[in-house]
Structures are given as structure tokens and as C-alpha cells.
Write a protein that binds this DNA or RNA. Structure first.
Lengths: 361, 361
DNA sequence: GTTGCGCACACAAACGATTGAGTGACGGCC
DNA sequence: GGCCGTCACTCAATCGTTTGTGTGCGCAAC
């Protein structure tokens, strides 16, 4: 690929002149004649500025990092798409890091990316008390948290109004007439799961309906939902409705309920969270709280880029954007069965019509 | 961040000494004493080599491009994960480009990435006659095609044995007893779709079962599958089984069939292609040809990195890896209904039990 | 006729690391 | 004792751009 020097020789000018011509340097006027010669030479050599050299000089790589648990998870893939679109429009590019929820992987990636002189970092892996996030923020790196918040530092972030989301879910079930509602909670060290659980407990408490044994610890995956549901089903009295930590946990819970002979939504209403693409396709289609993943990524990228390119003006305030969720009502929720005081249903009443769902994930 | 010069001053040696110490330069032996001083100074300043500067000097950025239609599509997200894992292990990083199947976006990205001096490119967007791929290859860029092949040039690639995949699908249906099999084809300009269609026609021809009107043009998305199925249902005689271009098209086809009052698999068996995560979760769970997406990405990354780092030894041969597919039998296929010569089923016989599926995607 | 001042460019020093080519000092050998 | 060779480094050029500081030239003013 041609360099500035060669183009300069061809155009009969000094390299610096071309550089200034290209970026329209205000304190240097260039005659029409040389400008034309320069453009011709650039055309002839198919010159494109070497961004590595430019980065070295300008101390700006236009490279962003995006830290996610696993990019194969559609939730984060859609987020990446949002990030990519905004970044690309601003001349930035994104390097993805999969941490698999392991702090040591995050730490390792961090050093590598710092060595690469990235301009900023989007973090979607934060824990509520994440020492890495805290350290980065204290050391003055440009970071923006996405979706998951960190309680140790007032870091700029784009997140969801989780309280509103959980209220939508619970109130939907209350409106349907449910009074016996359970919650399968997500990982407690993650802010989203924590807030969802706390809000669930608050709202239920306020209505005098909270039953501590109906809030069980789960995780953000299918298997955990399955296990948690089995736990719920062993209780003497069982709920008529359930809010799961996320859609995958909801699917696992539905599997367990079906194995136990329960029909969804006739015997058990289930509300998911996130509205992943799968949610609309399973049977019954999941009623769920929609999280605008793509928009979240896009807004976060905007925030980060503004922080990087923007002057010192707003550099000190940690902007925190909160997006609003939306309830998507589908088929997995219905009014409770007329027989109040639902008793534990006997086992072996059949497997429902979809044996495949009985498989463990 | 500390630079080599500062570390050198602290350690009392010349910067170049540190550089050589770090990369164990063979033609320079370093005394234990200075080595210790150097390591201490590095520790003290928390020095990490600036990869931008190194890239400029070494003419190697350790950056790879990955061109996909849309990273939000789980197929490509999983592929990216495979790429990322291998790349990371070799000290490479990946920049993702979403082309949305638009050549002008691909072209634009290309120039940007060339300016960034990326070391190589993974291309998952190739068309059968892709001028961009041809040009890149002719100009000597390090590229590897993933999944989709280009017929204009003998480019290194990692792809699937599509013929084997389609044979698995058709023979599975034949084994079940089907003789009336249709195919919804994918975009003809894409090699995978083209090969699937050609193999379908060959195999059916060989068995004397090919009916040209039962091979309809579709696309790799749900809506196209829906439309194509409606087309099939308007024919005087309808097939008892169907192989779709991919899983999404299969889902669309199932929707259309259901609207028409057909049950899957009782009245119509459907085989998908790809085995996306959704395939196992829908109802009925899709019988489908599994494409090892993650492995595909991983192998492609290995090939590309070998080509970049490897010497000129194997630089000239275009290695072409072909992976084998696997048939995953689930619930969407069954023997044909006993009544031979199936006639068009009357409309309005009900919508099946899942109205949601009737929605267009 | 010298000074002053724009104009339109050239020069050269960075940015931070790598690397081929030195360069003193020391030791061994004849 | 002079010479060569090794050891353990240092020097300086280089990668391709950017940018602050010249610099010659023409023109106008006094």
C-alpha cells in the first residue's frame, strides 16, 4: 500500500503538505493547483492513510473494547450489533472479549487491550461489587457500563429500569388475578438480578402477598430455572404464577413444571425477562419483559464516544442513562384456575404434549 | 502508561536492551544483574509494550477482520465465538463488520480495514461470484472464506460438505417412507443454498422422484419460508415432506402449513438446516442438519493465522477445509400419513393450537 | 530601497518500539 | 605485548503520520 512519501514524490510536494491538504488544516492554505496535483496522486496510487501510524502520533486508536460474558449468547450479540452500528458511524471499531463470567479472563483481556491502546471500554460483565470496574474508573479510563451496574463507583452507564420491569411483570400477574406468585432469582452478585429480586419482594410485600419460600435462588440459564422450579414444586403449597429471572430460566422452569404434570399457562403462569428472540417462538410463547438490547448497546457506544472525543467539559460527570422496559404479553400467562388454594398436583399425570421439553437443557 | 524510555531510564540501560530482553533476542545475551534490574523497573512502572508502535514497526497489527451479514444472527454470533477463541489464543483480535448483505457496505468496510492495516480477513458473506473476494485474492490479501464459497477464485476456505448434508436430509425422509418431497431453496447467488438445491435435485432425480414444481425459490429467512410454503400449498398436489434451505425458512414454512390446517409432522414432515439454538426449542422441535458453526469459525481462524504467521512455505496453496454435517432427528419428521396421494386439505380447518405461529415474522 | 507581511509551502522533530550495526572492555592465546 | 574474539551493551535509523516552526518569494508601503 502506498505511503505518504510516495504520493508526495508523485505530486512533487512535501508529505506534510498532503497531510494538511487531507485534513483541511485551517492554518495552512493550499493553492488550487497543488491541491489538484495532490488529489490526482492520491487517486493514482490508491493511497489510504495508515491508521496505525496515525494512531501512534495522535495517541488515539479509535478502537473500543466490549466485554461480554459470551458473544454466542443472543442477548449480547444483539447488543454488539447496536454498539457496532454507532461505533462504525463515528469511525470506531470494536474488539469483543468473552469473559465467560471469569474475573481472571476479564483481567487478562484488560491488560491486552490496554497494551493495544484502546480508547475506551464497554463493560457488560460488571458485578455489583466489581473490583476491576472500580479500579478502571479510579485510574481514569474511559468506560461505560452496559446493562449491569457496579455499586462501588459512580461510573457512566446505560441500564434498564429494572424496578419498572419487575413491577410490570408482577402487576400483570396480579391483574390476571394471581395471588400466589413465585420468583426464581438470578445471580445475586449481578445488579440486574438483585434489583429484580428486591423489587419483586417489595411489590409483593406491599400487597401482603410475599412468601419468602417462594423466592428461590436460581441463575441466568436454563438448567438453573429447571432446578429452581423443581424446588418450588416440592413445597407443600405451590404458586399459580412465576416470574423468572430471565427467559432462559423461564424455559427451564416450564420444562420442570411440565414434567410435574402442570400445564402452562392453565396451571401455572410464567413471565420471563429480556424477550430474547426465542421467547416468541417457543410453545407457549413467553410473556416477558422486553429489554431493548440493541438500543442499550447503541446508547452506551454513544456515551463512550462522546466521553472520548468530547472535551473536558462533561468529562467529570458520570452520565447514567436508564431505559424503560416494556411488557410483551404472549401465551404463557393466563388467569389462575378457578379452584383456589391449588394443591400439589399428583405426579405422572402425563407429560404434556411436548416430550422434547422434558429433556434437560 | 509508561514507555520504554522511562523504564530504560529507571533501569539504567538503553531502551533497546529492554526490548531485546523482553523478546529474548537470540543474538544478544543479557547478564543476570541487568535482567533483574529491567524486570524490576518494568514491575515498578507497570509497563506494557505499546502495541500500536510495535505494529507500525513490525508491519503486523495482529488484527483480523470478520465480515458477516449480521452479527445479531445467532449463526454468525456462534461462529464469531469460535473465531475469537482461536484468535485470542494466538494474540490476535477480531473486528466484526456487518454487511447486511449489501456489497457497498462490504466495500466500504474493506477500505477502512485496509487502512487499519489488518493482517487478514475472514469472509462469511461471499457470493458465488463475488467480485470483492476475487479482487482481494488477486491482490494477495490474506483471506479465508467461511461457510460460503466463491467460484471465481481458489481461495482458502472452511466450509461444509453441503452435498452430504442435503443427502442426509433427503435420505432421512426417504427412509421414513416419503416419496413426495419438496425443497424451499435459499438465495441462488450464495454457494451453500446453490449446492443444497443442486444436491436435492440430483438425489431426487436419481430416485426418479424429482418434481420441478416442488422446488421453489425462497431465501434464508422466515418470511421467505412462509411465502414459499404458501406457493407450494397452491399446487394441485402437495408434498408430504419438505427440506427447507435453513431453519428459519423451515419455521416460516411450518407457520404457513399450520395456517392451512396441516399438522407437522403428521401431515407434513419438515427438515431444517443449520441447527440454530432455536431449532431445539420450537414446537415441534426441528429435525435439522447440524452445521458446526463454532468449529467452522475456529478452523477458519486457524487457517488464516497460519497463513499470516507461517512462512512462504505453504503460502501459495489454497487450503480448503470441508467439515462434515450431522443429522439431528427431532419431532418435525415422521412417516407419511397412510392415505397415499394426499389431496389439498380444505382451508379453515382450524389454526392448530398455536395462534402465535400464524403471525408473520 | 529597505522593511514588513502574507502566502504557500518545506523541514524536522516527535509518537514508541524494533533491529542491524557498532563499541568499549575484558580475557585468552601465541 | 599485540591481536582476535566474545560479552554486554549502546547508537541510530526506521515504520508512516502529524504538527510547530521555519523560509523563500512576491508585493505593497514608507
Amino acid at each position: 500500500m502506498a505511503t505518504l512519501k510516495e504520493v508526495a514524490r508523485l505530486a512533487g510536494v512535501h508529505p506534510s503538505t498532503i497531510s494538511r491538504a487531507l485534513r483541511n488544516d485551517p492554518n495552512l492554505r493550499i493553492s488550487e493547483a497543488t491541491r489538484r496535483r495532490i488529489l490526482q496522486a492520491i487517486e493514482a496510487t490508491n493511497y489510504h492513510p495508515n491508521r496505525v501510524a496515525r494512531s501512534l502520533k495522535a495517541q488515539r486508536t479509535h478502537l473500543l473494547g466490549l466485554m461480554v460474558p459470551d458473544i454466542a449468547n443472543p442477548f449480547f450479540a444483539v447488543m454488539l450489533r447496536g454498539v457496532e452500528d454507532v461505533a462504525g458511524a463515528w469511525g470506531f471499531h470494536v474488539i469483543v472479549c468473552n469473559t465467560d463470567e471469569r474475573p481472571e479472563k476479564a483481567e487478562a483481556y484488560l491488560h491486552i487491550l490496554m497494551g493495544r491502546q484502546i480508547d475506551g471500554m464497554l463493560i457488560a460483565t460488571s458485578h455489583r461489587e466489581d473490583p476491576i470496574v472500580q479500579r478502571l474508573w479510579r485510574e481514569g479510563y474511559a468506560i461505560v457500563l452496559v446493562n449491569r451496574l457496579c455499586e462501588l463507583a459512580q461510573v457512566p452507564s446505560v441500564s434498564l429500569d429494572e424496578a419498572a420491569g419487575m413491577r410490570l411483570a408482577v402487576e400483570h400477574l396480579l391483574d390476571l388475578g394471581h395471588r400466589h406468585i413465585a420468583h426464581i432469582a438470578g445471580p445475586p452478585q449481578v445488579s440486574t438480578a438483585h434489583q429484580r429480586r428486591r423489587t419483586f419482594e417489595e411489590v409483593m410485600q406491599r400487597h401482603g402477598l410475599l412468601r419468602p419460600e417462594w423466592v428461590v435462588q436460581g441463575d441466568y440459564n436454563r438448567q438453573a430455572g429447571y432446578q429452581a422450579m423443581r424446588q418450588l414444586l416440592q413445597l407443600p403449597e405451590r404458586p399459580t404464577a412465576l416470574v423468572a429471572a430471565n427467559d432462559l430460566a423461564a424455559l427451564g422452569a416450564i420444562s420442570a413444571a411440565r414434567e410435574h404434570g402442570l400445564r402452562v399457562p392453565a396451571d401455572l403462569s410464567v413471565v420471563g425477562y429480556n424477550d430474547i428472540p426465542l421467547a416468541a417462538e417457543v410453545s407457549p410463547a413467553l410473556t416477558t419483559v422486553r429489554v431493548p438490547m440493541s438500543q442499550m448497546g447503541a446508547r452506551a457506544a454513544e456515551l463512550l464516544i462522546a466521553r472520548i472525543t468530547g472535551g473536558a467539559g462533561q468529562g467529570c460527570v458520570a452520565e447514567r442513562v436508564v431505559l424503560q422496559p416494556e411488557l410483551v404479553v404472549r401465551e404463557s400467562t393466563a388467569p389462575p384456575a378457578p379452584r383456589r388454594r391449588a394443591l400439589a398436583v399428583g405426579r405422572g399425570r402425563g407429560h404434556g404434549h411436548r416430550p422434547a421439553h422434558a429433556r434437560l437443557p
